[in-house]
Design a protein around this nucleic acid. Structure first.
Lengths: 248, 248
DNA sequence: CGCCTAATTGAATTCCCTCAAGATTCGTGG
DNA sequence: CCACGAATCTTGAGGGAATTCAATTAGGCG
């Protein structure tokens, strides 16, 4: 992980800026204001929790580098992953809105996170209403991803389901500025997201490799033929688009 | 449907007031202000769409009586229901936030809806920040329901799954002021929510009847033993709670 | 070089689906 | 008030997709 040493370096906040821009925050003044509030930054190692479900919290957590996942441990010991988070995404806006216990977020690979105090956030939203709007938009986009997960679980066969998840992650990786065709998830992560057994995920991955969608090189999920993957998934990524951001 | 004739009668807005209160809007002035903005009200018959996914919209739709569902038609002809809506719930806040095509909402039973113009809404949120906060809280609560649906689809067997959905609806029915132990959904509705075939839903319902959770009386889903149903579902309804509403 | 995690393979089983037909209830109009 | 049609619900049988259990192989890191 290069560049994680210097907190608030230009390369680190770049993802956040790009995310805010895509959500319709264009004013340099507003952008600068948000960045200035980004306080204590820290590294979270793969596997560790970035935010824990505890009740009291005084600041919003923002992912600046890496990949994280919002998940829940079921009482049968299984883990359900709801969504992945990429640089620029907030990890716990829900808890900010509804001061209450919420699901934990864990680092899927080594992560770098920043923090914005609730007080600062309130003040900036008051001063620049556009900022609050941007967070609301991000929340709607997240909700849409949840809906996609519902559809996935309900009526798509395993191959399409896995392919869909991979398509989404590929797109979001790219948009967050993490170029590359390797999706940094384990088959266990995928199984916990798709609600399938690891065994079946493995077989499905092999099918996708046979179809030429994924690289045959084992021990990593590498997209070989992006178009093929989208086709197998019957993927329509419009739910990830912000569209015309005029007002709200 | 009694009382649907007189628009904005006290009994009709009662559900909305109770919902707003539960979300932390206590000031009489704010409450009154919201109610005053409730404009054209209308009846939507069972089966008809309350909001269509079209792009342009100038007002927020609020359900005042009845039960509705947010759904999507899949290209294989199947319908996926994401969530049900009860009196006091807004139908299309997502579209207000992110000016973009969104999923339709249909009346599950005869409904009565009201409308608040976007302009009015903006003004009132500016004047009373607490009002905007309340809508954000409602959105977080809705997102939690989506997550519950993801979990349902992923790793719960049919009986638990159906029972869970029924528990949620029972609780929300009660909280919206619609007393009674009959859940006004067809088995088709349930199948479209749970992502199961109608046939299997039917068999599962019969299991729940055998277990004493549901009334044996056919052609309606009537809760016979609430405790038993919760037990079978292993239902934990805390995701529907607002909790301490102090700030946000 | 060895340990630990992740990936892979096989076999038996279970849950749920599809297809197909029949029964019940309800609304509607004669 | 009854008859009819349309939903909705119910029941049976056979098949397929994904699960569980169990064991093996491969890579990455110290």
């Amino acid at each position: 992980m290069v560049g994680l040493r210097e907190p608030l370096g230009a390369d680190v906040v770049k993802s956040l800026v790009s995310k805010l821009r895509s959500l319709g925050l264009h004013g340099k003044e507003e952008l600068q204001a948000v960045l200035c509030l980004l306080k204590t930054t820290r590294v979270v190692n793969r596997g560790a929790d970035i935010v824990r479900p505890g009740d009291r919290q005084k600041s919003l957590t923002v992912l600046l580098a890496g990949v994280a996942c919002r998940y829940r441990m079921m009482d049968n010991g299984r883990r359900q992953i709801f969504t992945f988070e990429y640089p620029g995404d907030t990890c716990d806006y829900h808890r900010y809105v509804l001061q209450q216990r919420d699901d934990p977020v864990a680092a899927v690979i080594d992560c770098f996170v920043g923090v914005i105090g609730y007080g600062d956030l309130e003040r900036i939203c008051e001063q620049y209403p556009q900022v609050g709007l941007v967070f609301r938009r991000a929340m709607v986009l997240e909700a849409r991803i949840f809906l996609e997960r519902v559809i996935n679980g309900a009526h798509r066969p395993a191959r399409e389901r896995i392919a869909n998840i991979l398509c989404e992650q590929l797109l979001r990786l790219e948009r967050s500025g993490m170029a590359g065709d390797v999706i940094p998830l384990t088959q266990v992560d995928l199984a916990d997201t798709a609600g399938l057994s690891v065994v079946h995920v493995n077989r499905t991955i092999q099918e996708l490799r046979e179809l030429g969608a994924l690289s045959k090189r084992s021990h990593s999920i590498k997209v070989e033929n992006r178009h093929k993957l989208i086709q197998v998934a019957r993927f329509d990524g419009t739910y990830l688009d912000v569209g015309q951001v005029a007002r709200g």
